[in-house]
Design a protein around this nucleic acid. Structure first.
Length: 286
DNA sequence: AAGAGGCCCTGATAGC
DNA sequence: TGCTATCAGGGCCTCT
């Protein structure tokens, strides 16, 4: 579920709510996430203070006061929930937006000074990891490409990377080695704004298309962050702080509906590309 | 090296 | 009502 904008929104709200709190204890009720939850997670985290929370692509990183790092990835269905003494707080970390705490799949609970921080993940594609020093953390990210929001996501980088590449551009947007943080929703949206057909081979993009790809990658992600991310499963239940970007979707889940480009009479098509649903207008996306 | 495909999981929904 | 099939926001691994 969570792509860069959603993780960024989680990061920001965690920053406001749990920074400088101590981890009193950790309770793991299911260690079978995508990777086994580290044996000594409870021991490593006990009595540590969370000094800083940051984000790299779709990963959350907690800086601890003993110079260890805790990394969390939410996979496809992971959410984070904060519970205070008396109230359940939708930290906005919960992208399902449900105001009630899920009763199933709460795999890890971090007891902090003021909150219970709950890691919930039905499909268990997410994971947590401890790094004992910064070099290990850097090593972990060695194969991760630039983020669209960073300055190193340049047109020269993009054109160099894509030249000679036969795979279609849609699969490159999902390839975290090329660019990190974009997932299936935003890949579809970015290609629509850029007027590029998702099936187009990487090497066939011209200069202008590469410029647009860069520009709209930044624009779409920034706008989604501003809107609080996308909440697509049960956003009926959401109040206040949950995401609103799903209202802005131009193509995602809009198959058979009219193309929203004013000068286009096309209908949005749906097609599976690199195993993922792909939505596009085959008239205005060339 | 690049690209295709399998696989890890549960839950919601559609169709019979 | 209850079964089965399909699909879902991710990404690792293996094979060619």
């Amino acid at each position: 579920m969570p792509e860069l904008p959603e993780i960024e929104v989680v990061k920001q709200s965690l920053d406001r709510k749990i920074k400088f709190q101590k981890i009193i204890k950790v309770l793991v009720t299911n260690r079978n996430l995508r990777f086994k939850v580290p044996k000594n997670l409870e021991f490593y985290l006990k009595n540590k203070i969370i000094n800083k929370i940051s984000r790299i692509s779709k990963y959350l990183i907690f800086y601890l006061n003993n110079n260890d790092f805790l990394l969390i990835h939410l996979g496809m269905s992971g959410t984070i929930h904060l519970v205070s003494k008396n109230n359940y707080i939708n930290s906005n970390a919960s992208f399902y937006g449900s105001r009630n705490l899920p009763s199933k799949h709460n795999h890890i609970v971090f007891f902090l000074t003021k909150y219970k921080f709950i890691y919930n993940d039905p499909r268990r594609f997410g994971f947590v990891k401890i790094f004992k020093n910064k070099n290990d953390l850097i090593f972990f990210f060695r194969n991760i490409g630039p983020e669209p929001l960073n300055n190193n996501f340049k047109t020269s980088y993009i054109s160099n990377y894509l030249k000679k590449k036969k795979k279609c551009i849609k699969s490159f947007l999902l390839d975290q080695k090329f660019v990190s943080g974009i997932g299936n929703i935003y890949a579809n949206e970015i290609l629509f704004y850029s007027k590029i057909n998702p099936t187009k081979q990487g090497k066939k993009l011209n200069k202008d298309e590469i410029k647009k790809l860069k520009y709209y990658s930044k624009l779409v992600l920034n706008f989604a962050i501003k809107k609080g991310g996308s909440s697509i499963r049960d956003f009926k239940n959401i109040k206040g702080i949950s995401g609103n970007y799903q209202k802005e979707f131009k193509v995602y889940q809009r198959q058979n509906l009219n193309c929203l480009d004013r000068s286009c009479n096309g209908k949005i098509k749906k097609k599976i590309i690199s195993k993922r649903s792909t939505f596009f207008c085959n008239i205005c996306q060339k």
